[in-house]
């Protein structure tokens, strides 16, 4: 369980935006996890609302379909008393010719304080952050990063295992197209986990070892003695043809079944960012089995996102005060 480290000075979070875990210092990640732990018990309170973001406007700007992430952010913001606007943009408005920046500027003109964006293009949140005043939270930018997913994955690991440092975590599946994989790699390596990636050779980007991970193409070797297996969804919609031969072959080589689970540690955690393709990357039995923490991940997601919203608000407020003082 997470303990407050009383002997050390309080952790500080200085980011104006949350664009990716690549950009966070270890201490900032620790700070989010610590605050999330403080928020988590409030989820079970009778009255769940807190006034932290009272009078602030949070906009969910989603250019890609998402139910779980958008809802999770919405609940988190509402628990903190923010006004939440959901702005789901279909591909049709892109066809009308309005640029992303114009759409975002319009939203800011309507009074947004925090914009949470999901977009199919890597770097889309960076573009907003460099042109707008609102705090930007990346809720997934193409194949680049999905920082709050990475944070909630780490939060769940720490909650269940009591630590992250020294854990062996295998990220299994389509690494190439996965923003979850990249955010996990940045975060976990900063916190001292041993990170492995495992999947078909065509779905693992060349040179990923440079990020401090070990690469496996064989499932049994990849999950051997793992403490955590984080299974990625096979994203058929992102896939060109011929990245691998067939779903059938993928299941044969990389589908995680009970039979295969025995190669991992007996108390291995099974995680999945969802939505899951039951019977493809993960068997029914494993998804619903004793090792699975897939539903706890979802619950923890709310606490982690509350922490992120709170810390961004706080960092902004401190910056404004500093500027005033100067």
């Amino acid at each position: 369980m997470i303990e407050a480290r009383k002997d050390e000075k309080p952790l500080e979070f200085r980011q104006e935006h949350l664009l990716g875990l690549e950009y966070l210092a270890r201490e900032e990640i620790e700070c989010v996890l610590q605050n999330a732990a403080a928020f988590k018990p409030t989820l079970d309170q009778k009255v769940k609302k807190m006034p932290t973001l009272l009078g602030k406007t949070v906009v969910n700007l989603f250019f890609e379909n998402s139910t779980r992430t958008r809802t999770s952010f919405e609940i988190a913001a509402k628990r903190l008393s923010a006004d939440v606007i959901n702005f789901t943009v279909g591909t049709s408005s892109v066809a009308k010719g309005e640029s992303l920046l114009d759409t975002a500027r319009t939203i800011e003109a309507l009074g947004s304080d925090i914009i949470i964006m999901r977009h199919s293009c890597p770097g889309a949140c960076h573009l907003l952050a460099s042109h707008l005043r609102s705090a930007i939270i990346n809720a997934g930018d193409g194949c680049h990063e999905h920082p709050t997913q990475g944070l909630l994955d780490m939060f769940t690991m720490r909650e269940k295992k009591g630590r992250i440092e020294g854990l062996t975590v295998t990220i299994l599946g389509d690494i190439l197209h996965s923003r979850v994989a990249r955010s996990n790699i940045w975060g976990l390596t900063k916190l001292g986990a041993h990170v492995r990636v495992c999947g078909p050779r065509t779905l693992i980007p060349r040179g990923i070892e440079e990020l401090g991970v070990q690469v496996f193409y064989n499932l049994e070797q990849g999950i051997r003695d793992a403490d955590v297996i984080n299974i990625l969804r096979i994203q058929r919609e992102r896939m060109d043809s011929n990245m691998f031969p067939s779903i059938r072959e993928y299941r044969l080589l990389y589908g995680l079944t009970h039979e295969r689970l025995r190669f991992a540690k007996p108390d291995v955690l099974i995680m999945h960012p969802g939505p899951i393709n039951r019977g493809i990357e993960i068997s029914q039995g494993v998804a619903d089995g004793e090792h699975s923490v897939i539903n706890q991940q979802v619950t923890n997601g709310v606490a982690v996102r509350m922490a992120v919203l709170f810390l961004l608000r706080q960092a902004r407020a401190q910056k404004t005060e500093l500027e005033k003082a100067e």
Binding site: C143, H144, H177, G207, I208, D240
Partner: peptide, 19 residues
């Protein structure tokens, strides 16, 4: 090249951009 936008290498790997 297909829909690649950046050199396939270290940076494309980090940014998730098609190489």
């Amino acid at each position: 090249k297909r829909d690649g936008v950046i050199h396939e290498g270290r940076v494309s790997m980090m940014l998730g951009l098609r190489g």
